[in-house]
Amino acid sequence: MMMTIKGKLIRNKSLFVLILFSLVIAVLNPRFLTVNNILNVLRQTSINSIIAAGMTFVILTGGIDLSVGSILAVTGAVAASMIAGGANLFASVMTALAIGAVIGAFNGIVISKGKIQPFIATLATMTLLRGYAMVFTDGKPVSTGSHEVAGVFSSIGAGYFLGVPIPIYVMAAVFALAYYILRHTRTGRYVYSLGCNEEATVYSGINADRVKIFVYTVSGFLSALAGIIITARLSSAQPQAGSGYELDAIAAVVLGGTSLSGGVGSIFGTIIGALIIGVLNNALNLMDVSSYYQLLLKGLVILVAVLLDRKQKSSK
């Protein structure tokens, strides 16, 4: 449907970069291409890619969501303290997810009904929620405790099913669902249409406000999901968790070929983008690269990848 020739090129290009990149690393370090390490990379990527999936919805409408990291911190802290306080697993997880979705919906309402630019609106909620996370946790990590429910909870992040870490299943499910929504449902079509031309979308009889609220709700919900996984992995919620994650998520989306101005891009690209970042982090650690050079290399990779993408788009 949206897959024009250009779209296919972009898709294959980021995939191509990922494969090439992986091959180079595999040659440099034989431990890279082991089953264990691949599962390890996928598990580490799950957090960023789940947030980036939500971010893809937002960016496709031409928006941006800076509050994802703060939502992650707040929802993680809520889940951890509920578990620590003896609440049951299902209730804790559902409460955290609901809070994420509600905060996201709030972002969407401020942006659509209040006509505030997404950057400004989510910058405000980002700061506000980070403050709330500090207040809520009193600046200290919240441990889930060591009782039985906490053990089950931690398996959401640290557990395995059939030898594969559970966060990988969660990530796969999120992407399958996101793909389905964006490609096969009318809501997905509205997301693209809104990103291409908001006015024409409104003139076509579509309630643009509702679409905006939807995408920010998705982003908030998925941030909460990432918050639960990260809290479960550590059996503890950090008040500072997720700071800077919005930038990692945006980087993944952009590396995947989605345009920041909206309307163009795919969820498939986003997962590739997230994997490129994940593989890079993993490789730098595997090869014991000095920390001073790590940031340098990461910045370079993003710059080169985005430039490649730009070049491809202009020379269609």
Binding site: M1, G195, C196, N197, E199, A200, Y203
Partner: peptide, 13 residues
């Protein structure tokens, strides 16, 4: 161009 059609989408869409 401003509000009649969505230029970035296909004819079908």
């Amino acid at each position: 161009k401003a509000n009649g059609v969505v230029l970035g989408l296909s004819i079908k869409e």
